[in-house]
Amino acid sequence: MEQSSLLLFLRRMFRRKLVLVAFVVLCAIMLMALLAPWIAPHEPTTIRVVRRLKPPSELNWLGTDEFGRDILSRIVYGARASLGIGLAVVLVSMTVGTLFGLMAGYFRSLDGIIMRVVDALMALPDILLAIFLVAVLGASAFNVVLALSIVYTPRVIRVVRASTLVIRELPFVEAARALGVSTRRILSVHILLNVASPVLVQATFIFAYAVLAEAGLSFLGAGVPPELPTWGTMIASGQQYADQAFWVVLFPGLAIVLAALSLQVVGDGLRDMLDPKLRKAL
């Protein structure tokens, strides 16, 4: 995209206030993750048993956890792992899922095999499958990403395949075939452009799920090693103190909600921008 049309694109996209706000929030969270060592007021791993489960105060803005560690600092550092894992899972599952979804939807001969694997994977509860995979692969951030990607890719395949099945029957695809347009172009232009919106929506969901699932894995002891703060591990380990010290789970929870929500709004904005019909109206 040329400079000017990119600017126009962004101007139109941010004409809606909510999208702009969400985008700013998202940027803030990412900046926070990048600049964690400079922003965090305390070391995220320093244990001070005397100050355990202290409510928000001058010293610890968001309170302390059961080991007296500063919650704000842990959230700031946790953004790195949580966002990183979430984004990595989204990236991997989107890419792989879109590819297989297109193939399953467009080539009837591949559909059977791909969908049989998808159905098998989806027959198991998400978290069970993830635990199993992490148990087999070993607990590390990389393996958590791998496991969650394997869990969520089938969902993307389903969505992409369903849309592809509809779109491939539309007259404009038939017209392209009649013109002798190559199958690669039909898939990568005609179909991909038109499945982009449901996929984007799916991406925002998967991001939110991945952050939560990572928390679930940590809670069950099958996640990222506990010395690494993630929003998920914070909630997981703080859960048993929630009734006496709500801030232990509330603030990391808010961070998850805020990140997922703003991502979703930005995703919606992006989807609308991809639709030429709506673009004009914005």
Partner: peptide
């Protein structure tokens, strides 16, 4: 050498192009 013109003027053009 052979081409088609379709019935539905809405569905026969890719809305994204």
């Amino acid at each position: 050498n052979a081409q088609m013109v379709f019935q539905d003027p809405y569905a026969s053009l890719n809305p994204r192009l």
